[in-house]
Amino acid sequence: MRTLGLIILVIVLGGTYNKATAHCEIPCGIYGDSVRIALIYEHIATIEKSIDQIRELSSKDPVDYNQLVRWVMNKEEHAVKIQDIAAKYFLHQRIKIIDPSDTEAYGEYIKQLTLMHKIQVYAMKLKQGTEVGLVSVIRDTVHEFEHAYFGKH
């Protein structure tokens, strides 16, 4: 009977486990900002491929609904990963709150926040549909954020 209780406990705990999708919020001091940017670009490329496959599969007769659903789920999963990196990594940990009295630093802060907000909104819109033009928009916005964040001009 004790074994059964232990099995049930493992199943319940396993079912309530939430995998951390960002690096961490300890903070551990181990950061890879450029790695996170590269991951966002990779997720964008995956979303673009997913959109292409969704459009191609949707135009076939008969439609392979199994594959179509898998590509839709893939697209949405990668859009969520972008949102997680933007929020849980950059907004929660890396973009530091700046005192408005430091007008130059505050302006950079606002620019980074604005770009991260755009990235999250564009990722949401990519989850909602298959507008291929949004892929370029989000990619360009990530590029702009990369320059604003790392100070490249």
Rank of each mutant, 00 (worst) to 15 (best):
M1N: 06
L9C: 02
L9V: 03
I11N: 05
V12G: 09
G14R: 10
T16I: 03
T16M: 04
T21S: 09
I26A: 11
I26S: 13
G29M: 00
Y31T: 09
G32W: 12
G32M: 07
V35A: 14
R36G: 04
R36C: 10
L39S: 08
Y41A: 10
H43A: 13
T46M: 10
I47A: 08
I47P: 00
S50T: 04
D52V: 09
E56Q: 15
L57T: 08
S58N: 09
S58R: 07
D61L: 14
D64G: 15
N66P: 12
R70F: 09
W71Q: 15
V72D: 07
M73L: 15
M73H: 11
A79L: 05
V80R: 15
D84L: 11
A87W: 04
Y89F: 15
H92Q: 04
H92W: 04
R94V: 09
R94S: 02
R94P: 12
K96D: 06
P100V: 13
S101L: 03
D102K: 06
E104P: 00
E108R: 08
E108C: 08
K111L: 14
L113Y: 00
T114F: 01
K118C: 01
K127Q: 13
G129P: 14
G129M: 05
T130Y: 01
T130Q: 03
V132H: 01
S136L: 01
E146N: 11
H147Y: 13
A148M: 12
Y149S: 02
F150N: 05
G151W: 07
H153F: 13
